[in-house]
């Protein structure tokens, strides 16, 4: 259950094409993440799959069933919204039971499912409270509870963690991953945060301006980004791009090196520069190196114990096997 196939899907608002023809297959049980900068069309794509928006052309099949023109309720999907979209006038119990009640399920079965879901999500003590009396993380769990009781063929998540604070976000990330491991249901997850994408996904779909830039597993995207956009978007800190002579030497229009693939030395190396800012995170240290004559700044990531400071002159050497080469159109060579 939960194989979703998009064929030549397009979407226009007024006369602006936000999704150009797009093909995508999401396999059964896969955790797929749509990632991209804001305005890239990832949420629109999710809403098209959900049925909250009409496609302008193309088709969407869920489990082999043509669903392009079905209303959201008949697609067998459940969605968790960015704002959680809980019903403020209903208790947690009623919130979770709402989709079952709409499906006219009998009361005993509703009670059983709500109890199970509450148990799984640690909400048992809060069942009779209203959303207004819950913390952000608890609300998030209620939203998830409302989604899982329906036993949908796929879950859709629309930036579900962006309203949580940093610490809670890491916790919920784990919970959602665990939930996926346990339920083995297809999940589609939209985020602008590449860390979420890298940590949770089986498959990442990188979008920009409605186009799919690349589809692949997190490590595929990390190791072999197919163009400069993906290369720059995946990985933190961002990949360094160098154009000009240094790139020409490699037979490319531009080369990219990730900060973690550059060696730093006080005495010798390929490029010489001056550290403008050093950020010590404990586990890692980031250097921002100026005056290399290659690019504005080169970011380098080294072990936490390396001690250089502002103003120090350093020599940088990229790892030969880790240099990404791009042509004038930004495509990988």
């Amino acid at each position: 259950m939960g194989r979703i196939v998009l064929e030549k899907v397009t979407k226009k608002f007024e006369h602006v094409e936000v999704i150009p023809p797009l093909d995508l297959t999401i396999e059964e049980g896969e955790f797929t993440v749509f990632v991209g900068p804001s305005g890239c069309g990832k949420s629109t794509l999710l809403r098209l799959i959900a049925g909250l928006e009409d496609v302008t052309s193309g088709s969407i099949c869920i489990d082999g069933r043509e669903t392009t023109s079905l209303p959201p309720a008949q697609r067998g999907l459940a969605m968790v919204f960015q704002s959680y979209a809980l019903y403020p006038h209903m208790t947690v119990r009623k919130n979770i039971a709402f989709p079952l009640k709409m499906a006219k399920m009998d009361q005993a079965e509703i009670d059983r499912r709500v109890t199970t879901a509450a148990d799984v999500l640690n909400l048992t003590d809060y069942l009779d409270r209203r959303p207004g009396q819950l913390s952000g993380g608890q609300r998030q769990r209620v939203a998830i509870g409302r989604a899982i009781v329906r036993e949908p063929s796929a879950f859709l998540f629309d930036e579900p963690l962006s309203n949580l604070d940093a610490a809670l976000r890491v916790g919920m990330r784990l919970e959602i991953s665990e939930l996926h491991k346990r339920l083995k249901t297809t999940m589609i997850y939209v985020t602008h945060d590449q860390v979420e994408a890298m940590t949770m996904a089986d498959k990442i779909v990188v979008l920009q301006a409605g186009f799919i830039e690349q589809v692949g597993s997190p490590l595929e995207l990390y190791r072999a980004p197919c163009n400069r956009f993906v290369a720059g978007f995946i990985g933190s800190p961002k990949m360094n791009f160098i154009e000009g002579d240094e790139a020409a030497k490699q037979g490319a229009h531009a080369i990219g090196v990730r900060p973690e693939h550059i060696k730093v030395s006080a005495t010798e190396g390929a490029w010489k520069g001056v550290i403008s800012v050093s950020e010590h995170l404990g586990s890692d240290t980031f250097f921002h190196v100026h005056d290399t004559g290659l690019a504005e700044t080169i970011t380098v990531r080294v072990d936490g114990e390396v001690s250089f400071d502002h103003g120090d002159t350093v020599y940088l050497t990229p790892r030969d096997d880790m240099i990404h080469r791009f042509d004038a159109n930004g495509l990988r060579i």
């Binding site: 309720a73 704002s83 709402f98 989709p99």
Partner: peptide, 23 residues
């Protein structure tokens, strides 16, 4: 009223009538 809540109701299988009446 945030439209996401009504969309949630729609996703939850509510008909238009239920959406207006219960949400």
């Amino acid at each position: 009223i945030p439209s996401e809540i009504l969309e949630a109701a729609r996703m939850d299988g509510a008909s238009l009538r239920s959406e207006i009446l219960y949400v």
